[in-house]
Design a protein around this nucleic acid. Structure first.
Lengths: 241, 241
DNA sequence: GCAAAAGTGTTTTTCCTACACCCATGC
DNA sequence: GCATGGGTGTAGGAAAAACACTTTTGC
């Protein structure tokens, strides 16, 4: 394999993505079992081409891992402490494992570049989890949807990045009406409520929740959904474009 | 003068600061009459040392221009469009004027560096305007406090950055109780109200405003302030630490 | 009919707004 | 006393929360 071409990218600047999905009444995050650094977990990330806008770079990185385009994306914070990588206890392991893995592709220059000081722009993404087909990146052993209530130890400051992303999501979910990006095309009111309960980790009163959401006037009611259960069939809704 | 040492800084990454102050019932921004680029206006900004955290860099840049330390600072957005500098109509003028101004300090390498593509981290700062003693930076002809209702044309995308900063301030003023950073140590309730009116550009009902602020329970009431005016003396307040 | 869940309507509470009123101050 | 602005109390209304009730569905 040919040498990793760090020269195409802006140095010392990276993007990390917190990809949120929703399934089984749980808010989930797509994280990567990292090939290097003792098999720790990491957020999907990447670098910015010298000729590429940062939103474009984030979209590209997401496309690579999820296969999806036009994903809902929000920049939420820059992480730029001078020691965030340099003092990381993963740094040296990663460096030596990279070299061992492929000395052609990762020579000393490249591993220095990869493990140097990085300022990281954090983005979070909201996806319809059923549409995602996770694709390993170059540094991923595999990707996995993990519940936000059951997160493993993560590399560098990625746990902190994730926490800040979740805070930002909680702040924006209501205000910007972005929650529907986590649901399929059509959904019942109960599903919306369960999503909110998963994000905020607290119950809502069903009748008031329904009123609140319908009063927003952003949903259109479709036909009923007959599940075969012995109870009244709920309406399906769709987000108005 | 010796050559501008771009090698100390992370390349393609900059910080711009929107410094808010409050005086004469108006919200003001400290902006710089730029020495180059036809004397346009610009936001105070700077670069990040390779060994320096970004918050630290922002503090340093602010210290240089205002003389103050421990300023309230908030990161609010990254501006990373690939064309934000490259396609700017100011780029070529700035480049040639820099060279003419000091060919030793700004040779071709340096001017290329300075006018290359930059990703810019936006910070806003809140200061007690009476404590600021504006200091020109290397590229400033002079600095000036301008009302947000009377802003000049600005270089590159600095007008947009300013607009986004003001939006972020409006979002956070209430929520994070940061407004008091714009006021002196002690202040009357009316002064708080006038500050809010300046920021949001709308009137508040005085009685209800007072109740709202006092109910936050973050102010302590001090002695009265006798102004010599023929009316009841208002209380002074101080922000509880 | 019955259990389960959906959905609607009503009451209660809380919060916000408007406004009337009293208070301190200097002349 | 009086004009001026500071500060408090209260009534009305809108929005949110709590709760009671009706409807639909499959067995």
């Amino acid at each position: 394999m040919k040498k990793f071409d760090d020269d195409r990218y802006i140095s010392h600047l990276s993007i990390d993505c917190v990809i949120f999905g929703y399934r089984d009444k749980e808010l989930k995050v797509l994280i990567s079992k990292f090939k290097f650094g003792k098999g720790s977990w990491s957020l999907p990330g990447g670098y910015i081409l010298k000729t590429e806008g940062i939103d474009k770079a984030a979209s590209r990185i997401l496309k690579e891992r999820t296969g999806l385009e036009n994903i809902y994306l929000e920049q939420f914070r820059v992480f730029g402490d001078e020691n965030r990588i340099v003092n990381s206890r993963y740094k040296d392991t990663i460096k030596s494992e990279l070299t061992k893995f492929d000395p052609q592709r990762f020579d000393a220059d490249v591993t220095d570049w990869l493990t140097s000081r990085f300022v990281c722009i954090g983005y979070y993404a909201l996806v319809d989890i059923s549409k995602v087909n996770p694709q390993n990146g170059e540094f991923d052993e595999y990707l996995e949807w993990r519940s936000i209530r059951d997160l493993p130890e993560m590399i560098h400051d990625h746990s902190e990045i994730l926490t800040v992303a979740l805070d930002a999501l909680r702040q924006n979910l209501d205000q910007k009406l972005i929650g529907f990006n986590l649901l399929p095309e059509t959904f019942t009111m109960r599903e919306v409520q369960e999503l909110y309960e998963a994000v905020y980790n607290r119950p809502f009163v069903i009748t008031n929740f329904q009123k609140k959401i319908l009063d927003l006037n952003v949903l259109e009611r479709l036909e009923k959904k007959f599940t075969g259960a012995a109870n009244k069939a709920p309406y399906l809704y769709r987000f108005k474009k």
